[in-house]
């Protein structure tokens, strides 16, 4: 039974075909800080990792979580609190943040996967809103002010991250590449293949003997954990953890990034995140018009651009991206 399955995987995933885009991506990450403002790049990288983690659920498992800000924001609070109050070094603060987010993912996922499709989206949204109210009231989040003035600290005890933005940038890009590699590995593993099978036809996957709920829950925990990795890093970059990151607006943004870049593509969410952070950067003086623009992009994408940038590109090039 197992031999033909392996053969099919080789045909479908073709890990070699992505060597070129991965090299291009890493080269871009290395060169970018000499061309673009590093703080902006760090923000883009954090959101790119967040969108990639989100895409594991939406693009590969077919689960639309409307509450991913919960993991992103909770991890931000954790790393900010650990770095500022407990004086943890940055690597431990971020690791702890990712683990916290994964643990929250286990709880939220266990509740949410009890319903499918549209209900799953509403449940995750509702649970994230509950968490938002919790953060608004909880004593350790600083309420409306958030946790401000978080020290970036010394990496492994000797590398000062606060002094040069470039040092911080390369630290953030290493985290990004590690997170991305983990997601890439997950997507192209047999586990990822089962996720795709669940997305395409869950009853059939069940009839083949897969415990689809276990797979969905594990995918949810991985996605939450890596979202936490991104959120925890972002809190150290901006030295701030605030309510914005747990608000439903952030959940909406990460959906939009994935949708615009191409859900179910490996590189699309990165492009979507860079696009949307750039857009926000340019429109930031215009206040609520950012929201209007985002809404309009949602409408256009859903009506006419459902494959997204990399979905269309991979169709043109006839290779998976």
């Amino acid at each position: 039974m197992s031999a033909p399955t392996v053969a099919i995987e080789r045909v479908e995933t073709r890990p070699k075909s992505q060597r070129v885009p991965v090299i291009v991506l890493i080269a871009l990450i290395l060169i970018a800080p000499w061309i673009v403002y590093p703080v902006f790049l760090m923000k883009a990288l954090c959101f790119a990792l967040f969108a990639c983690a989100f895409n594991l659920l939406l693009g590969y498992a077919g689960l639309l979580s409307f509450g991913h800000a919960l993991f992103f924001g909770a991890a931000g609070y954790f790393s900010a609190y650990a770095a500022k109050i407990w004086g943890w070094p940055p690597e431990l603060a971020i690791l702890g943040a990712a683990l916290t987010a994964a643990a929250l993912g286990l709880i939220v996922g266990a509740v949410a996967i009890r319903r499918q499709g549209i209900y799953f989206a509403m449940i995750t949204l509702a649970l994230a809103q509950m968490f938002y109210f919790f953060c608004l009231r909880a004593p350790f989040t600083g309420g409306e002010d958030g946790i401000q003035g978080v020290p970036r600290g010394r990496l492994f005890g000797f590398l000062e991250l606060g002094r040069h933005p470039i040092t911080m940038y390369y630290f953030v890009s290493v985290i990004f590449v590690l997170g991305f590699a983990l997601l890439h590995r997950t997507i192209h593993s047999p586990f990822g293949q089962v996720l795709t099978a669940i997305r395409e036809n869950e009853p059939r996957a069940i009839s083949l003997g897969y415990k689809t709920n276990h797979y969905k829950l594990i995918a949810f925990v991985i996605s939450a954990g890596i979202s936490g990795l991104a959120g925890g890093t972002k809190a150290l970059v901006f030295q701030l953890a605030s309510l914005t990151d747990v608000h439903w607006g952030t959940s909406g943004e990460v959906i939009l990034m994935t949708l615009i870049g191409g859900m179910g593509t490996v590189f699309g969410p990165i492009a979507g995140a860079v696009f949307l952070t750039t857009l926000e950067n340019y429109l930031s003086q215009l206040g609520s018009w950012v929201t209007v623009t985002e809404g309009a992009i949602f409408v256009v994408c859903v009506l006419a651009f459902r494959r997204g940038m990399f979905g269309e590109l991979s169709r043109l090039l006839k290779r998976p991206l």
Binding site: L64, F66, G117, I118, A121, G252, I255, L259, S288, W289, V290, T291, V292, E294, G295, A296, I297, F298, V299, C301, V302, L303, R306
Partner: peptide, 19 residues
């Protein structure tokens, strides 16, 4: 997929609230 309907109406909500 009904998820697209959710996303489209979410976009509409953002537009209306933003305006």
């Amino acid at each position: 997929d009904p998820l697209y309907g959710l996303l489209l109406t979410f976009g509409l909500a953002l537009i209306l609230q933003g305006v």
